[in-house]
Computed example of a mutant assay.
Amino acid sequence: MTVRFLSRRSVSVVASAGVLALGLAGCGGTTKDSTEAAAGGAAASSASADPNAKIKKGLKIAFLPKQINNPYEKIVDDAGIAAAEEYSGEAKEVGPSDASASSQVSYINTLIQQRQDAILIAANDPNAVCGPLKQAMARGIKVVSYDSDTAKECRHLFINQASSEEIGRSQVRLLADLIGGKGEIAILSATANATNQNTWITYMRDELKKPEYSGMKLVKIAYGDDDDQKSFQQTQGLLQAYPNLKGIISPTTVGIAAAARYISGSQYKGKVVLTGLGTPNQMRKFVKDGTVQKFALWDPKNLGYLASYAAAALASGQITGAEGETFNAGRLGRRTIGKDGEVILGPPTVFDKNNIDQYDF
Rank of each mutant, 00 (worst) to 15 (best):
V11Q: 13
I119T: 09
A258Y: 03
A307S: 15
K294L: 07
G290W: 02
D77S: 15
I256D: 00
A312M: 02
G270A: 01
A222T: 06
A53V: 15
A101H: 08
N124A: 00
G321V: 06
P126C: 06
A15E: 12
T191E: 09
N69T: 15
N127L: 13
Y72K: 08
G338M: 05
A128G: 01
N70C: 06
L20M: 10
R115V: 11
V144K: 10
G333C: 07
Q240P: 02
Q318N: 12
S250Q: 03
D98W: 07
G255I: 05
G338A: 11
E166R: 11
I221R: 02
G247Q: 00
Y268E: 04
G270L: 07
L175E: 02
K60D: 10
G18C: 12
Q229D: 14
L239H: 00
P126V: 00
G58E: 08
I263V: 11
A313G: 15
A37F: 12
G28C: 13
R169T: 15
A25F: 12
G23L: 06
A312T: 01
V129H: 07
I344K: 04
A176I: 07
R4C: 10
Y87S: 06
G18S: 15
R4I: 14
N160Y: 05
Q234S: 06
S264T: 05
A257P: 01
S48N: 09
Q229N: 15
I108W: 08
D227H: 06
K134H: 08
V272W: 03
I356P: 02
S46R: 13
N127A: 15
G338W: 14
S264P: 01
I159N: 03
K182M: 09
Q161M: 07
E212F: 12
I249T: 05
L332G: 01
G265V: 02
A62I: 14
G26Q: 12
E166I: 14
F295S: 02
A84L: 05
S106Q: 10
A192R: 10
M216Q: 04
A53G: 09
A258Q: 03
D33Y: 06
I201M: 11
A83K: 08
L59H: 04
N109D: 15
T30R: 10
K152N: 11
Y72N: 12
N52V: 13
S106F: 03
P211W: 08
N160M: 09
K217T: 14
G341H: 03
T252F: 06
K210Y: 09
D177W: 07
E85P: 07
G140M: 07
N109L: 13
V172G: 06
N302H: 12
S12M: 10
L188F: 01
P243W: 01
H156M: 01
Q234V: 09
E73G: 06
G26E: 08
S145R: 05
A37Y: 13
A222N: 04
I108K: 04
G255Y: 03
L178V: 03
N124C: 03
N196H: 10
P300C: 00
N69R: 11
A118M: 05
D117Q: 11
G18V: 13
S163P: 04
V11L: 13
N328R: 09
A312D: 05
E184M: 01
G324E: 03
I344N: 08
A194W: 12
K74G: 11
A42T: 15
S266E: 04
A122V: 11
K32G: 15
T191V: 14
E166D: 14
C154P: 00
S264N: 07
I141C: 04
